[in-house]
Design a protein around this nucleic acid. Structure first.
Lengths: 184, 184
DNA sequence: CGTGTCACATGATGGACATCATGTTTGGCC
DNA sequence: GGCCAAACATGATGTCCATCATGTGACACG
């Protein structure tokens, strides 16, 4: 590498960071390669020095983001307290508003269905988080812990997506709050 | 109208039908006006005789579809049986696969966030269905019926979206089944 | 039976986009 | 200190798209 090696690696990282931020905010198809590069402090040309295609970037940045998100899991205690804290964060008004910085699953799940190259890594990550959730948090229903974790997780995703889609703050808060109560 | 009035009205309807079908299948931005018109048996030009813009079509076709969906509500009995039947349909493998013909909320919710013209009608329709759900079906938790209905509804949406996003049929079926059990 | 008008088809326009081609700068290495 | 490849900028290419402009043919009405 004739350019300073660390700088180039940093630029690559910055492209990944800015792209996932923009993707979450406006969707895969709502952002152009040019915008991503501009946000990363570059012009659109050298994009192809870093990635084979836009779809390849989508796969890499999403995968990286999910890894980072789910890796942070053990920062909360694996108890009822930790579980409640996680719900409180996930279904907070703050998270609802911060789409660009929030959970990538809620922001992008419905677009992933159309991007085959992205689906594989996404599926593996979701399986892994379900596994982690079901063994890490306490589940006390008479049914399977794994099923409880699945239901718990899809409830949060659905609530967040719906609260973001509606136009009425009061109603959005109600969706978050009523779901939240029932997941503690 | 110098063309047969009924024909023109039928074409308008066909544009609405085909557009909502394509939107659910590929998202608002995944379909072009030209494609919609071709699917409706017309060329792209006369689109603007029927709608002011693509966004106006999005609003009209989604609103119409939601009205039709939520209007069919009273076809199932307002009992535990009816509620369970609704869950069984909504979280069926068939519904998971039939994105183009299925629930528009699950298919488009995350894109609605970016289309202000569409949000208003969407919000009103969601409020209305929550109202209907909470008064129509029996809810027996110690909490509010309305909150129960909200949680029940967002769970179904989240489960359907996630099951469609993953790449593994077995896992997708597990998401649907485990959620389904817990909503009966 | 002609005529005006409306819904249609065809084609144009201008912009956005992903991708690529071609120079240009950079800094590690001999 | 000069050389060369890697990483950059600029600009081109071709495609696709939403929207609009213009022509055309069908039908209701006189």
């Amino acid at each position: 590498m004739r350019y300073p090696a660390t700088d180039t690696a940093q630029k690559h990282e910055r492209i990944l960071d800015e792209s996932i931020r923009l993707f979450r905010e406006r969707g895969f198809h709502g952002v152009s390669v040019g915008e991503i590069m501009k946000a990363s402090g570059l012009t659109h040309g050298p994009f192809y020095n870093h990635f084979a295609s836009k779809e390849a970037l989508m796969a890499e940045s999403l995968n990286r983001e999910l890894q980072r998100t789910f890796g942070d899991f053990d920062k909360v205690p694996g108890s009822d307290i930790g579980k409640a804290a996680f719900v409180d964060y996930y279904l907070s008004e703050e998270h609802m508003r911060d789409c660009a910085g929030g959970c990538a699953v809620a922001a992008l799940a419905s677009e992933i269905r159309k991007e085959p190259e992205v689906q594989g890594a996404f599926t593996a990550q979701i399986k892994s988080v379900i596994q982690k959730l079901s063994s890490y948090f306490p589940w006390k229903s008479r049914r399977s812990a794994r099923g409880d974790a699945i239901h718990w997780y899809v409830s949060m995703i659905g609530a967040l997506i719906l609260s973001r889609a509606v136009n009425d703050d009061e109603f959005a808060r109600e969706i978050l709050a009523e779901t939240s109560k029932r997941l503690h």
